[in-house]
Design a binder for these strands. Structure first.
Lengths: 197, 197
DNA sequence: GTCTATAGGTGGATAGAC
DNA sequence: GTCTATCCACCTATAGAC
């Protein structure tokens, strides 16, 4: 195997650890020392890979958004292939959240949304993009479901998309502190039922 | 006016400022220095009133829960007097959240729920009590509404109560970072509509 | 109840050797 | 890429004077 354009394996490991820390503790409650401890390198080395915590935070959100977009594309592809419709796509969306919770984490961006006011501007902007991406996709699903009659969508699509994201993020946070995963599952089922899914 | 049992006006002011800080920035993102700066006293003086940040946090939750309970009692009293039923009480519940958001804050306990894993044990216990109080009251409302036919409640009452809290907390957090108060209002309306309120 | 002074710790970040 | 060493800002908390 040739070296190639510098395999960024350490950078990836840093992002993996940092992501879990944010998803479980929040951005303000972890430090470079936490990552360094797990990785057995010094905090000075971390700064080589990510010059500042703000930059690390932005990269974290961008990677998460990219991964999320891939999952949404996979849902679309699976629905197209199996003849599944908007109903299956909406269920798939909730399934992404359930999978994250099953790893005993919250949504990265849900945690960051709670800390929004304290985040560096660049992170706030990246978060905006993440939620815009989510809600754009959801609006597409809802629109298709309404058109085909497979989903019961009342009111503006944007509001409905907002509602879905809010409910899933909220029940995720509360499931981790009170009630456990079962609480999230029940909330997701109730939410989907409201849209006829 | 007699001195009485030591009017704790400074302690109250500290709690007021700390509460707003937690509601806007979170528990991990504010310091004694922030409060001291607003109040124009030193951090050493703050420690006279609240020996540790953990104790301040517990008192914050307890006061919030007590105030919240009073608001719920007022809703019950108003409904009893005006002949309003479960529907009005449920609307009143969402109204409490809307009023908090109108002051450009999130729910104190919603913010703390996101940071749950990082909080001192005593604060975690106080938070448990807060949510138990909320969900007990909501279950009572839902039960009454189901019995009288004024609310459309499907599934276990506990799950329904969980769903209501999760949705309101989630849409509050996201309204403050994305979408604004209108986003919360729309979500609350949609939530209530799902219960026939 | 409030102050000064300070302890003791942790935070993010940098310089420069290897 | 990783290290040692270090800086400086900030944090919670305490001792003791007033």
């Amino acid at each position: 195997m040739k070296p190639g354009p510098a395999a960024p394996q350490t950078s990836q490991a840093i992002l993996d650890i940092a992501q879990r820390l944010v998803q479980t503790r929040g951005f303000n409650a972890f430090s470079y020392a936490d990552i360094a401890g797990v990785l057995r390198i010094t905090t000075a080395s971390l700064h080589y890979h990510f010059a500042s915590k703000a930059i690390l935070g932005v990269r974290l959100i961008e990677r998460y958004a990219t991964h999320f977009a891939a999952l949404l594309a996979a849902i679309d592809a699976a629905a197209a292939q199996s003849g599944g419709g908007a109903r299956e796509r909406l269920r798939g969306y909730a399934g992404i959240y359930a999978a994250v919770l099953a790893e005993d984490r919250s949504c990265l961006c849900g945690m960051l949304a709670a800390e929004f006011e304290t985040l560096p501007r660049a992170m706030q902007g990246a978060l905006d993009d993440y939620f815009a991406l989510n809600e754009r996709w959801l609006q597409g699903v809802l629109e298709a479901g309404r058109a085909s009659g497979s989903l019961a969508v009342t009111g503006p699509l944007e509001e409905a998309a907002h509602y879905i994201v809010s409910t899933l993020e909220g029940s995720m946070i509360l499931a981790r502190s009170h009630g456990g995963p079962a609480r999230f599952d029940a909330a997701a089922r109730r939410l989907l039922a409201g849209f006829g899914a």
